[in-house]
Design a protein around this nucleic acid. Structure first.
Length: 870
RNA sequence: GGGCGCUUAGCUCAGUUGGUUCAGAGCACUUGGUUUACACCCAAGGGGUCGGGGGUUCGAAUCCCUCAGCGCCCACCA
């Protein structure tokens, strides 16, 4: 045989990657067919493919390819995200390595470097997606900083502003001192940490007494402008109207009474630093306290910290504690567990900071988005995330969208240089000037008088528009594409960006188009290693997807990942699963080799066993396709794969092909080979979404053409054909088992006696081919020593020249005991008046039937044992 | 502190509305097999009192309560 014994994934993949890129096979243009659309979750433009992408995009490709086979006009839009803070951090590091500091160069210069960096490293990930077989419409590739998408972002900002959804406010925000930007609440992650709780002594003015105040942050005393006590706290009533002296600073501060202070915590007294805690800020606002900011942008202390000015916050903390200690101003130190806030990107401790920022009012936008998910208009898979979503959405907080970065969409707000409380929102400087002139009646204003906001928008402010903006539906709401492809069908993503992205896309969808952005959200799990640990760079436990593809083939890796990827559950990735995937590829390859190698005889009649096998497999295939369709409809993709896997490996290869395969030296009939090929093509169609490479290759070889596959349709299924065939199959297993336990050679002939009418000529032919038995229909002859085997409720008898082995006899006795036990249970149940009276009739009938069956089983087993004795 | 979810074979997980067609699958394991597609293979087999306890019911892996363990999300306890 000229074809390789082992499937060569490298060669095949190389070939098909070329075909797929040359032919623009996956290009979509609106037409009369129904559309099926997915927009890719855009990976970071300079990112590289990791296992999460691999899983996520494999699932999308499976959905996409199946939809294509089912005749939809399929559009999978690829693209990348500029990933504002992540990319900027990389560029800053690159510059630092070159000895350049971000602040030393102009914004324009920095952006030049950033674009250079993006051009150099960007888009690599899209090529990697091609390697795993992704069938995107590559002609539609988008980048969030493309001109059209940028314009969409700006247009949306202006619309939100004009409709009152945007405001600028001084609030406590999350400050990342390393990236020197604010972060949204979603970009902050909390980690439990053991800390010290210091009890500091604040001198009471006009007395020699001290008030003890607990804090984890003694370094912020320079910003203290009050001490707050709960008004219900009886212990401190006598302190009313007293003042306190802040240690080290020697500033006198008032005592204020506020309900938000917990009586139980520490001493019940809270030092208030309005500039460095949201809670303190609110207290300060209420009591009109002074606000003293003590940090620079890089979280070193500023001049307000007197002799600690310029020192790093952590270093300063230690020294301050030492100084306080030396002065006897710390009464005790306790261990205390609390959550520290870390930046998702830079991993440094986030500093709450008072700052003027742009916010989006979310409450109103959230309303239709909550309803859509609640009433099932948008479906989440798995459902458990509906509650998580609702919980977040119903308590949604305003979205801080400004970032003190360069890389991104610059906020389209222009201020008057002289007075930055006066501003306009406009898409460019020219419009801004006109706007200024009308709004502020400033006729003689020129470009030098205005300045654009320095900040850029949160990266998610562009990605929340993605399903609309990739079809240019913001600039041109009546465009052809947006009206054809939107709402999109499904979106596939990890639950970690449920709030960042999914929730916000739903909101923008309703806000901008009054329509949901997608019908279904499929949440994948996290890819962990085989010990259940998250994959991370530090642990080095994340395999390189491309390397895996080299070793196991893209199809093998796709299958391997999906073998353990039920929606929403984390999956423990093990390369063993890829090995299984690779083996499966090889199995398919060899099925092809076998079929391809059949010698065909044009004149030969079909064998009876061929007819039986084809008849059965036709029905079985329909049954399984129904199961697979069902699994897909419920987004149980792993289940769909497993059903396919077993259908191919067990039913098609192990059973069907084994029967159809001509006996040694014989040929196969023409009619049969045609039918086998047809069935194989259907099998390949089902496999195609999971394993695009090998199926394309085999199909081309088997049909000698590149004709398109269809997803097979099912009609009425003949259950009896399946049941009878499977009866025979079970019989075959039992005969083999009998041979094994009785040390009869696998290929040795035995005589089989049967009494029922299930076996027609075709099935008999199958039985003979696979077990090499001699068939006789007859009553049992009691005088002959025979061994009975049971299939369902029917008895078969094997006559062999060998007696039953000890093991075989033991088995029969065990079988008898089991059935007697079962009989007792049934009889007890049926004599229970309560059961007979209360249970539904069909249940009772069923139990009676079972009893009949078991009784006849017991009789035949007893006969068997008696025969042994005779 | 609030909310959600999980606990079924050695491992990873299925089990819609309670009823021996529900105690399952894949992997792993055990045994036997290789000139005739594939040892990246074939055939056969063993294995679980469904986390513990209690309740509802004629009947519970499935419904209710409770305890234990694990995981996730949210939140301004200094």
């Amino acid at each position: 045989m000229g074809i390789d014994k082992v499937y060569n994934s490298k060669l095949v993949e190389k070939k098909w990657l070329k075909v797929w890129s040359d032919d623009k096979l996956f290009k979509s243009i609106p037409d009369n067919r129904p559309s099926y659309t997915i927009v890719i979750p855009p990976p970071n433009v300079t990112g590289i493919l990791h296992m999460g992408h691999m899983l996520n995009n494999t699932i999308q490709d499976i959905l996409i390819r199946r939809a294509r086979l089912r005749g939809f006009n399929v559009c999978w839009v690829p693209g990348t995200d500029h990933a504002s803070i992540a990319t900027e951090a990389k560029v800053v590091k690159m510059l630092r390595d070159k000895g350049i500091t971000k602040t030393d160069i102009s914004r324009e210069k920095f952006l030049d470097y950033a674009w250079e960096w993006t051009d150099k490293h960007g888009g690599l990930i899209l090529d990697q997606l091609k390697r795993i077989g992704c069938s995107c419409d590559w002609s539609r590739t988008k980048f969030t900083l493309d001109d059209d998408l940028s314009e969409s972002v700006i247009k949306t900002f202006i619309k939100l502003f004009n409709e009152g959804y945007l405001y600028r406010d001084k609030k406590i925000v999350n400050w990342d001192p390393e990236a020197k930007t604010t972060l949204s609440n979603e970009e902050v992650i909390y980690k439990e940490e053991e800390a010290d709780l210091y009890y500091l002594k604040y001198k009471i003015v006009g007395s020699n007494d001290y008030l003890s105040i607990a804090t984890t942050r003694p370094e912020t005393i320079f910003g203290d402008t009050a001490v707050a006590i709960n008004s219900k706290d009886k212990r401190y009533k006598k302190l009313k109207n007293k003042k306190l002296v802040v240690p080290l600073v020697n500033r006198e501060i008032p005592i204020v009474y506020d309900e938000s202070v917990e009586i139980e915590f520490g001493t019940g007294c809270l030092k208030v630093t309005p500039a460095h805690s949201e809670k303190d800020f609110l207290i300060g606002k209420k009591h009109k306290l002074e606000i003293i900011d003590i940090f620079n942008d890089d979280a070193t202390l500023n001049d307000n910290a007197i002799h600690y000015s310029g020192k790093d916050r952590f270093k300063a903390k230690k020294e301050i504690v030492d100084e306080l200690n030396a002065k006897g101003l710390i009464s005790k130190i306790e261990n205390y567990n609390h959550n520290i806030a870390l930046s998702e990107r830079t991993n440094c401790v986030v500093e709450p900071k008072l700052s003027l920022q742009w916010f989006v009012k979310m409450k109103e936008l959230a309303k239709p988005a909550i309803d859509a998910v609640k009433n099932g208009d948008i479906k989440f898979h798995p459902k458990k995330y509906v509650n998580v979503y609702r919980n977040w959405m119903e308590n949604i907080r305003d979205w801080n969208i400004s970032r003190q970065l360069y890389w991104g969409h610059r906020i389209p707000v222009f201020y008057l240089k002289k007075d930055n409380s006066k501003f306009v929102v406009a898409k460019n400087r020219e419009d801004a000037l006109i706007e200024f002139k009308t709004k502020f009646n400033a006729v003689d204003l020129n470009f030098d008088d205005i300045i654009q906001d320095d900040d850029v928008l949160d990266t998610w402010f562009s990605s929340w528009l993605w399903p609309i903006s990739v079809f240019d539906g913001i600039r041109f709401p009546e465009g052809r594409d947006i009206n054809y492809y939107y709402p999109t069908s499904d979106i596939v993503t990890g639950p970690d960006i449920l709030f960042f992205w999914i929730a916000r896309m739903i909101m923008s969808g309703y806000y901008l188009r009054n329509k949901k952005p997608f019908d279904n959200v499929y949440f994948t799990g996290l890819v962990r290693d085989d010990k259940g640990r998250k994959m991370s760079k530090q642990l080095g436990n994340s395999p390189d997807p491309i390397e895996l593809i080299e070793n196991y083939g893209a199809d093998g890796v796709r299958i391997g990942l999906l073998f353990s990827a039920p929606a929403g559950n984390d999956l423990l990735f093990d390369t063993k699963l890829c090995e299984q995937g690779k083996n499966f590829s090889n199995k398919i390859w060899n099925a092809f080799r076998l079929i391809d190698g059949f010698e065909v005889s044009p004149k030969k009649e079909q064998e009876l066993y061929e007819i039986a096998a084809i008849k059965w497999f036709n029905e079985k295939l329909k049954l399984k396709i129904n199961d697979i369709d069902n699994a897909f409809d419920n987004f149980k993709i792993s289940e769909a794969l497993m059903t396919t896997y077993k259908l191919v490996w067990d039913d098609f290869c192990s059973i069907f092909l084994e029967i159809v395969k001509p006996k040694f030296g014989e040929k196969i009939s023409k009619k049969t080979i045609l039918e086998v090929n047809n069935l194989f093509i259907k099998i390949l169609s089902i496999l195609q979404p999971f394993m695009p490479f090998i199926t394309s290759e085999v199909l081309e070889n088997i049909s000698r053409s590149t004709k398109n596959l269809d997803w097979p349709k099912t009609n009425k299924i003949d259950i009896e054909v399946i049941a009878n065939f499977e009866h025979v199959n079970e019989l075959i297993t039992k005969i083999r088992n009998f041979k094994k336990t009785n040390s009869i050679g696998f290929k040795d002939s035995v005589k089989l006696y049967y009494e029922n009418k299930i076996l027609d000529d075709e099935l008999k032919s199958v039985l003979q081919k696979l077990t090499n038995c001699e068939l006789n229909q007859s009553e049992i002859n009691g005088s002959v020593k025979m061994n009975s085997i049971m299939v369902g409720k029917y008895n078969y008898f094997i006559d062999s020249d060998k007696n039953l082995s000890e093991e075989g006899i033991l088995k029969i006795k065990e079988d008898l005991n089991y059935n007697i036990g079962f009989k007792n249970i049934l009889e007890k149940k049926l004599s229970n008046k309560k059961f007979v009276d209360n249970a539904p009739k069909d249940v009772v009938e069923n139990e009676k039937k079972k009893l009949d069956d078991v009784l006849s089983k017991i009789i035949s087993l007893k006969n068997k044992i008696n025969n042994l004795g005779s």
